[in-house]
Design a protein around this nucleic acid. Structure first.
Lengths: 112, 112
DNA sequence: CAATTATATATAGAAGTTCTAGGTATAACT
DNA sequence: AGTTATACCTAGAACTTCTATATATAATTG
């Protein structure tokens, strides 16, 4: 389990990217998928996930539709058109940031 | 300039790594070094740096000594023994986190 | 030589994200 | 029957970083 602070700033991008890759997902599914993809090192808590999803919806980046599964309602999240554009930008930015971080961790200037 | 959130959780590791690499540095020098290493994409503000440095000192990871430069006092920060151990751990953790992030961004499980 | 910019340290309060802890409910397993 | 997994949600706390501000010296520029 990584120290919690590391996730800050990347959670939204992670959610968007998973939605982009899988089409539609529900909340619990996202937490489990991240758990698996991270080999149990990133455990997203509900108290982190749902506020993040709701903010994404408020911002118009995701939309929801509900399906009945057995006796209960399952809420699926998927990207809007705006969300698709934003995902691409955010993933690019994160990739660049990772590159910059690696330069700093080796104390090498990005510019040759 | 990256969105501010990305830096969260990594600033302390960045500072520790720079101190580890350069022996001793003063505050302003750290901001300028990060600016150069990141090709102007990470601009650490004073309001971020000094609280972070003071916390590192409170936690016993860095120590300070002051030198006169011209007419003014310059405060140098350097790693304590505890700080050196902690730096190694934190840098390793960050490297692993970056690896995990890259798996997630391609939606590939870490475990084969 | 006056004004601006760069150097240099610091703090208070705001803003934002994620976590802890709690609540609710169904389904599956033992 | 009791526990665990599934599934959604919220309030308030905790933490980090930022904005804005204060102070002061040194160097540059018009």
């Amino acid at each position: 389990m990584y120290s919690k602070e590391l996730l800050k700033g990347t959670l939204t991008t992670i959610i968007l990217k998973l939605l982009s890759h899988n089409g539609k997902m529900y909340g619990y599914e996202i937490t489990q998928r991240v758990k698996i993809l991270s080999d149990d090192k990133i455990l997203i808590k509900e108290g982190s996930l749902y506020p993040a999803l709701h903010k994404l919806k408020d911002d118009g980046l995701v939309k929801t539709d509900e399906e009945m599964v057995g006796n209960r309602v399952r809420k699926y999240y998927s990207l809007t058109e705006k969300g698709k554009l934003c995902t691409e930008e955010k993933v690019n930015e994160l990739h660049q940031f990772i590159g910059t971080l690696q330069n700093i961790l080796t104390d090498k200037p990005s510019i040759a």
